[in-house]
Design a binder for these strands. Structure first.
Lengths: 211, 211
DNA sequence: CTACTGTCTGACCGAATGGTCAGTCAGTGC
DNA sequence: GCACTGACTGACCATTCGGTCAGACAGTAG
């Protein structure tokens, strides 16, 4: 009896099942996908899925773990050492945005989980991963504020939520934005993050600035 | 045979069913809710739901329409006439945020729909409502830019996505933010929107500003 | 050869699903 | 009185659900 409890390194077949399952769960959510769907997509028998994963819940948990790992993957390399603040922010935003676009299935699984307000384990996992990312950014901003680059009266928590939120939201509605004539950055994370960084650093008002 | 096709004004019982259904769909999504669940919650027989709505899909469509109306409800009263830019932005953000918090079920139904990438009618409805809101804000910002209040080199589409995104995102993760010591605005739309408006208008850098 | 292992399948199970249907009941117009 | 209507229900239907199980098959260790 294989890895129904322990998390031994996954079989090739199991990894294939997991991959197909993630795509389906990302598209339709837990309740929208039946084991039969997964079995058909993966080209294996239904019973084989239970053989490898034990239950639908367990399979979903594996999908969620996989997605969380990918979602939280090192967006670490944030600072090209000593670049100007605007450039560093842009770099962070762009890395974040590109990363989301490169792993859409994982992101959608996590976002779905965040939308539920259950109190169970899966939800807590999703929470935790999000919080870790938030904190990382927060401390980064704290350094910039202490070194005087960011104005002392800026609320860093609001700024952090703003930065992450704006990138995630753009990802969520990207298919919508594609059809908006005003929007030129729908599928261009680089341009989008440049615009954001510019607004964040300089503000939008016409007040004159001593460069 | 009643309103299976036409949308005649809903019966009191039908409205009650609809209300219970919306709550359930908001919590668990379309596939997570059975007609039996709705029937039990509403205290009517399952067959009665089919009598009033024809099918589960049709019931869901009614829920979605209701939610979209509430979601798109006039956040119109945006400008206290001739207030400073920062104050007007804050007013908009706060109205938006409060509105989301006041209709969490509707918002969740719409957000869920936005997460799907189907191509069917329901999705198009959700799209449309979102687009309308986006455009409204966009034109507002355009006026401010033409009148010289907003700097000419600011990309208004990015700014609009930013403003809406940051409010929606904060709503999505509000239960998370509650447990963050750095965050003081988790359930205080007023404070949150004030912080956002401040950042948006003035920027975050320490560059001196001629007031 | 035998014995045992993990992988995999088709047939099957009880429960729940969306949906139907015949029919009860209260009200309304004639 | 009677005919008709819409609201409503319990019993029922076919299908699908998550999950089980006995066994087939390949590999491999003794």
């Amino acid at each position: 009896m294989p890895n129904k409890v322990a998390d031994s390194p996954l079989n090739e077949t199991a990894r294939h099942i997991l991959s197909e399952a993630r795509q389906l769960f990302a598209e339709r959510g837990f309740d929208g996908v039946s084991i039969n769907d997964v079995a058909t997509a993966a080209g294996v028998s239904k019973a084989n899925i239970f053989h490898h994963f034990g239950s639908k819940q367990a399979l979903y948990m594996e999908v969620l773990k996989l997605s969380l790992n990918e979602f939280g993957e090192l967006t670490e390399h944030l600072q090209p050492e000593r670049a100007p603040l605007e450039q560093r922010l842009q770099h962070f935003l762009q890395a974040k945005a590109s990363h989301l676009h490169q792993h859409p299935d994982s992101v959608r699984v996590v976002l779905r989980e965040l939308l539920e307000n259950r109190d169970d384990v899966t939800r807590q996992l999703a929470d935790q991963a999000t919080v870790v990312q938030f904190r990382r950014l927060f401390h980064l901003l704290q350094e910039a504020q202490q070194s005087g680059e960011i104005s002392a009266d800026v609320d860093l928590a609001a700024l952090a939520v703003m930065m992450i939120g704006v990138v995630v939201f753009q990802f969520q509605i990207r298919s919508l934005l594609r059809h908006q004539p005003e929007v030129e950055f729908a599928d261009d994370p680089e341009q989008y993050s440049r615009l954001l960084a510019q607004i964040l650093v300089n503000g939008i008002s016409t007040k004159e600035i001593n460069k």
